[in-house]
Amino acid sequence: MRASINRPPTPEPEDDREHQPTFQESINIKLIESGEKERLKELLRERLIECGWKDEMKALCRAYVRKKGRNNVSVDDLVQVITPKGRASVPDSVKAELLQRIRSFLGSTAI
């Protein structure tokens, strides 16, 4: 991971100017830089464990692996199969809480 190994060339400055960060992207960077994203992730993890979502996903993964046989499953397969179900079953209350947190963060940093 050091310069000694063939690192791809650092992007030219003009490349950067071409690429205007979208609004969503700049929010994302703000969230990362302030450390808020990490805190939000932690909060989300906690909420998803509390409400049983994580156990539910674990059970789904287990069922899928059992069905396919444990040597015929890759992480990509699992992600692809489970993600839509996982997204759909996040409780609304958890979504609302996170949205509220993000909103208040944006309000306080005033982008």
Binding site: A63, K67, A88, D92
Partner: peptide
Amino acid sequence: KMAAARSNLPCNGEADCMNSSQ
């Protein structure tokens, strides 16, 4: 509220039956 959110899940396949028992 969580249980209510869950019951909105569509039920299909064996894995979802596990959901419904939950």
